[in-house]
């Protein structure tokens, strides 16, 4: 049936844009990522629930005289990560409109900020490790586990970015556009998770 697009054959910027415009439903890849996000979000909910469960089963929090977390830096860094949703969004828009070059640059910008974010977070993490350790007590355990899980998600996102940047540098296809859209919603999720995580992390100081 000729009127139905063979979308995977779209390999030039224009063709890709046409497919994107004509689409009536989200592609399979989008659904796949949405569901992956659903499980991962549940995973974060479980960890955060664990944090508060442990919190309310203890009278003292943080346990054992551990310093309360300092607020400013984590919040600033999180704001930084959330801000990258902008360039990610613009990258998708550009790609959908048939401008893969611009998409590449937006994504590269997002990548740079996200990578910086992860670097800074790891630095903070190491700094915290100097002060207390996950094997001190339950507070330390859940604190580092929650942050570590979040950072792992950021790292996965960075890998997706790298792979995409490499792919997009060689032109756009329908497949790559879907990959870009999928990566974008992944980053939106990671940003939201970052907010939830940082609020939990800072809870004793708020």
């Amino acid at each position: 049936m000729s009127e139905i697009p063979r979308s995977m054959e779209a390999t030039g910027a224009g063709a890709v844009a046409r497919v994107a415009q004509r689409r009536r439903a989200q592609p399979s890849g989008w659904w796949g990522m949405a569901l992956l996000i659903a499980t991962e979000a549940t995973l974060f909910s479980c960890l955060i629930a664990t944090y508060f469960y442990l919190r309310f089963e203890n009278t003292e929090w943080p346990i054992g005289g551990i310093e309360k977390p300092s607020v400013t830096l984590p919040l600033v860094f999180t704001a930084m990560l959330v801000a990258t949703c902008g360039p990610v969004f613009l990258a998708v828009r550009a790609a959908k409109r048939g401008a893969p070059g611009r998409a590449w640059w937006w994504l590269a910008l997002a990548f740079a900020v996200q990578a910086t974010y992860l670097g800074l977070q790891i630095w903070l993490f190491a700094d915290d490790l100097g002060k207390f350790s996950p094997s001190d007590n339950a507070y330390g355990s859940i604190y580092f586990t929650l942050l570590g899980t979040h950072h792992a998600h950021v790292a996965v996102g960075l890998l997706l970015d790298v792979w995409l940047l490499w792919k997009l540098a060689r032109g756009i296809t329908n497949y790559r556009l879907i990959a870009l859209r999928v990566t974008a919603i992944y980053w939106y999720f990671v940003s939201i998770a970052a907010v939830a995580v940082v609020l939990t992390q800072l809870y004793p100081s708020l």
Partner: peptide, 26 residues
């Protein structure tokens, strides 16, 4: 994910000495 969380926390406790389920350490 709830099972995965429970299991990961368990292994962190068993292998790396974290304390999620351990009353003595909160």
């Amino acid at each position: 994910p709830a099972l995965t969380t429970a299991l990961v926390l368990l292994e962190l406790q068993r292998m790396l000495g974290f304390h999620f389920y351990d009353v003595v350490f909160g």
